[in-house]
Amino acid sequence: MVPADASPRVFAEASLSPNTIRAYRSDLRQFARWRAGFLDHEISEPHELERISTAPVDPTEVAAFLADKANAVLPDGGQRYAPGTISRYVAAIDWEHARRGHTPPGSTPIVRDVLKGIRRTRSVPVRRAKPMTLKALQTTLLKIDVADLQTGALGTRDQALLLFGFVGAFRESELTALTIADLRLVDGEGVYARVRKSKTDQDGVGRIKVLQQGANPVTCAPCAYVRLSRLMAAQDALGEAGLFAALTGASLAVHVCADGLGAERLPPSMPFFRAVSKWGLFRNTGISPTAVGKAVARRAHAAGLGEDGWSGHSLRAGFVTEARNAGATDVEIMNQTHHTNAATLQIYDREYAPLVRNAVTRMRL
Rank of each mutant, 00 (worst) to 15 (best):
G37I: 04
L243H: 04
E307G: 15
D40E: 12
R298K: 10
R230I: 03
T290Y: 10
A359F: 07
A343C: 13
I208A: 09
P131E: 01
T285K: 13
A98P: 15
A323S: 07
T85S: 08
V126M: 14
L175W: 00
L163A: 03
P217E: 01
E48M: 07
S15I: 14
G78V: 10
G106K: 02
D76K: 05
A326Y: 12
R283G: 09
G304I: 07
A215T: 12
Y192I: 14
D113G: 12
Y225D: 04
L315D: 04
I180A: 12
T285N: 11
K116A: 12
S311F: 07
T329K: 00
I93Q: 06
D203K: 13
Q138Y: 10
N216T: 14
L137N: 03
S15H: 15
N341Q: 11
V90N: 03
A234T: 07
A328C: 14
A317R: 05
W310C: 06
K143C: 11
G242F: 01
R298Y: 05
D259M: 15
A258D: 15
A147E: 06
A353H: 02
G327P: 04
L305S: 07
R100H: 10
P3Q: 02
L345W: 05
N284F: 13
G78T: 14
A67Y: 11
S15M: 15
G204I: 07
P8V: 00
E307R: 09
A297L: 09
S288F: 00
F170G: 09
T179H: 04
V218A: 03
V124F: 07
N335G: 14
F166Q: 02
P109C: 01
V10Q: 14
P271K: 03
G249V: 06
V195C: 05
I43A: 15
R357Y: 10
T121H: 08
P217A: 03
T156I: 00
A323Q: 03
S269I: 12
R184A: 14
G206L: 00
Y352P: 12
A4L: 12
P3L: 01
R99W: 02
V218N: 04
R122L: 08
F244C: 15
V57F: 02
A303G: 08
Q79K: 15
L163D: 01
G188A: 04
D349W: 06
T200W: 02
V254W: 14
A12G: 14
K199A: 07
A215G: 14
L228W: 00
L161W: 01
L252V: 15
R22P: 13
F273E: 07
L162S: 01
T133D: 06
W95H: 05
F31K: 03
H102K: 09
M334F: 02
L178P: 06
V226T: 01
I333H: 03
K143I: 13
A237L: 11
N325K: 13
P3I: 03
A326M: 09
V111T: 05
F272E: 01
A224H: 00
P271H: 05
Q138G: 14
M232W: 00
A55V: 08
A245T: 14
V256P: 09
P131I: 00
